[in-house]
């Protein structure tokens, strides 16, 4: 039930944003985040619950780099 989908804000009108999901535009409540046009937001049940730091694709590219970084302290411990 906690499914949430990332989309890009194309327009903001008051506390409502138009958010683009792969070509579909949906009206989304913005009251829980500080966001501007062009931001990617994570949308759950018609409401943006967080501003994403970057597009999801970019994040996946860096995932295994982050794994290295997280594992680094363990290597240090072992030494």
């Amino acid at each position: 039930m906690c499914v949430a989908v990332p989309g890009k804000i194309t327009e903001i009108i008051g506390s409502i944003a138009n958010v683009d999901f792969h070509g579909n535009t949906v009206r989304v409540q913005l009251g829980l985040v500080q966001a501007t046009v062009g931001d990617y937001v994570l949308v759950h049940a018609g409401c943006a619950i967080e501003v994403m730091k970057s597009g999801q694709a970019e994040e996946l590219l860096t995932l295994f780099d982050e794994l290295d970084a997280i594992m680094a302290p363990e290597k240090n411990d072992a030494n």
Binding site: M1, C2, L32, H44, A45, C47
Partner: peptide
């Protein structure tokens, strides 16, 4: 219903 994801809404 819901967990913390939904409550702020």
């Amino acid at each position: 219903v819901g967990f913390e994801t939904t409550v702020p809404i």
